[in-house]
């Protein structure tokens, strides 16, 4: 049981962080399909930091540096979307898809180049971080890590920023009616950049949390296995609202963690279902959820439409 709760909380943190990222981006008016690629890059930043930090570094410092590295890489990568979608009015779905493919391909190329430079006989795309990962755990031996309280703090922060600050309310105005926002002197371009970059920050951190969930090495060829899209489903299920997103993430986290731990439950084990059923479960659940929650969606009205000053 404790195993289930551990994994559930880890995956919930990941989904919540990434979904909150998507929430900021979409509230500013930019659809962020590229979350998956952003996660890969955040994960890459964190993993490289864990690999190259000297062994004797203090535990808390490792944590802080890795988190900052993941956030930085996420923001950097999200700029690809921001520039294309905001300044060049590109098709946001197309650019997002390209970013997902590019994220995995580029990360694989980078990691393989680093691995072969170290040892020409090691052309793998795997980074190991067994020792560094221990610094993230709250209690040794369990999977409870410092990312969980951090995710909670970021959730509260997101809520306050979106609903209680001038910045957040202006950001949401840009996603609902950019023309009106512009007419009262809000810089739509700046706001949308901010929205996308916050999604890069949260998505990048989510990527780092994901690759440290229960494993201590990561093969970058595999990307993040559709987690960015699961997070988008969480966001839609959560109605683009931080509190509901947190609850939705909890539900999805539960189903995702079942595939890791179902063998530990006699009840589930006796059902004798093949393991692929548990692998498919989160994707099937999200499809079902989408069927019921997409019809009258509360999506920001102007999302996906490039802002054209001329059409005011």
């Amino acid at each position: 049981m404790i195993l289930l709760i551990q994994y559930m909380l880890v995956f919930t943190s990941v989904l919540m962080l990434v979904a909150l990222g998507g929430c900021f981006s979409e509230h500013s008016g930019v659809i962020n399909i590229g979350l998956e690629g952003i996660m890969v890059f955040g994960a890459l930043g964190g993993a490289l930091m864990m690999k190259y930090l000297p062994a004797g570094t203090a535990g808390w410092l490792v944590f802080v540096v890795c988190v900052l590295a993941a956030m930085f890489m996420g923001i950097l990568y999200s700029l690809l979307l921001a520039v294309a979608a905001i300044d060049f009015k590109a098709d946001q779905t197309l650019v997002g898809t390209a970013m997902n493919l590019l994220g995995t391909a580029a990360a694989t190329v980078i990691v393989k180049a680093l691995n072969t430079a170290e040892n020409p006989n090691n052309p793998s795309s795997t980074i190991q971080y067994i020792a560094a990962k221990k610094n993230f755990l709250i209690v040794n031996g369990y999977e409870f890590n410092w990312f969980m309280p951090l995710a909670l703090i970021l959730l509260i922060l997101s809520y306050i920023i979106l609903y209680k600050t001038r910045f957040g309310l202006r950001l949401m105005a840009c996603g609902e009616h950019p023309q009106a926002a512009d007419s009262v002197g809000i810089n739509v371009r700046k706001m949308r950049y901010a929205g996308v970059m916050i999604s890069g920050l949260l998505g990048g951190l989510g990527g780092l949390v994901y690759i440290t969930a229960g494993v201590s090495e990561w093969k970058f060829e595999n990307g993040v296995a559709g987690f960015g899209f699961l997070a988008l489903a969480v966001m839609i299920f959560g109605g683009w609202k931080p509190t509901k997103i947190a609850l939705a993430a909890l539900l999805f986290g539960l189903f995702r963690s079942l595939s890791n731990v179902y063998t530990g439950f006699p009840l589930l084990n006796n059902l004798n279902l093949p393991s692929t059923v548990y692998n498919m479960l989160p994707y099937i659940i999200s499809l079902i959820v989408l069927i019921f929650f997409s019809a009258n969606s509360a999506a920001p009205k102007a999302e996906g439409i490039p802002y054209d000053k001329g059409s005011r």
């Binding site: 060049f88 590109a90 098709d91 197309l94 391909a105 694989t108 180049a113 072969t116």
Partner: peptide, 21 residues
Amino acid sequence: RVYSAEISDFISSLIIYLCGF
């Protein structure tokens, strides 16, 4: 021993990205 074959995937995904422009 020096480069990975994924560089081709890298180039084709770059091309998709550029098609956005």
